[in-house]
């Protein structure tokens, strides 16, 4: 399975952010987007996730399901955690488990994800009382509750401590070993096996002003 982005041109607010950008990510490979602030890392991730429609160019998942969009085969972890303060941690994760992965054996997947991110003990707590790092982990638990080949991670380690960063790294590495794809944007070392850096600033085809 490969993710192929060809000749992407993306405009935001009348400004061209990416121009003629092409890149390729293979199965079992983590592509880490690097570049200074404003280079277009988040824009690229949001374009792959289908939120931003590119002016030209195409994104496709070769060897993926043909009847669904790339977005429906991807997990998107953005700056916000998609965690409801008024639901318990378990209710939050269970909702995403059934919504993204169907109702079958959802409970088992939820248990596994909570265990992996070491928040099983917090399952019955309302998410409002969690710390920022715990909320982030509850958000990341979404990665494990539904099987999707493509993971799009935008600054996934924000507010995570060193131990939790390792836990995330372990989840990503297991996903890569299973032939999954990961595209992450980060300024910090993520500790992923088989990762390759992709400099968005150099590849976006725009001469810096």
């Amino acid at each position: 399975m490969r993710l192929i982005a060809e000749n992407l041109t993306v405009e935001r607010g009348g400004r061209t952010i990416l121009s003629g950008l092409s890149f390729l990510a293979g199965a079992g490979e983590a592509v880490v987007l690097v570049g200074p602030n404003g280079a277009g890392k988040t824009t690229l991730l949001r374009t792959i996730a289908g939120f931003i429609r590119p002016v030209s160019g195409s994104i496709r998942l070769e060897g993926g399901q043909t009847d669904t969009t790339v977005a429906e085969q991807a997990h998107f972890i953005g700056h916000a955690n998609a965690i409801k303060a008024h639901l318990t941690v378990r209710e939050n994760v269970r909702f995403w488990a059934t919504y993204l992965g169907g109702p079958r054996e959802a409970e088992a997947r939820v248990d596994l994800a909570l265990q992996h991110f070491a928040i099983s003990g917090l399952g019955e707590f309302p998410a409002a009382y969690l710390s920022a790092g715990q909320k982030r982990r509850a958000g990341l638990a979404r990665l494990l509750v539904a099987v999707r080949p493509l993971w799009l991670l935008d600054e996934p380690t924000v507010s995570l401590d060193a131990a939790s960063t390792k836990v995330l790294g372990a989840a990503v590495n297991a996903h890569l070993e299973g032939g999954g794809l990961v595209i992450a944007a980060s300024h910090l070392p993520l500790g992923f096996a088989r990762s390759r850096e992709f400099d968005v600033a150099a590849a976006r085809g725009i001469v810096p002003a």
Partner: peptide
């Protein structure tokens, strides 16, 4: 609230 906490983005990547 779904927009503020990022749920809307995840809802958009669902099958629905």
């Amino acid at each position: 609230s779904d927009h503020e906490d990022g749920s809307l983005e995840v809802l958009a990547t669902g099958g629905l």
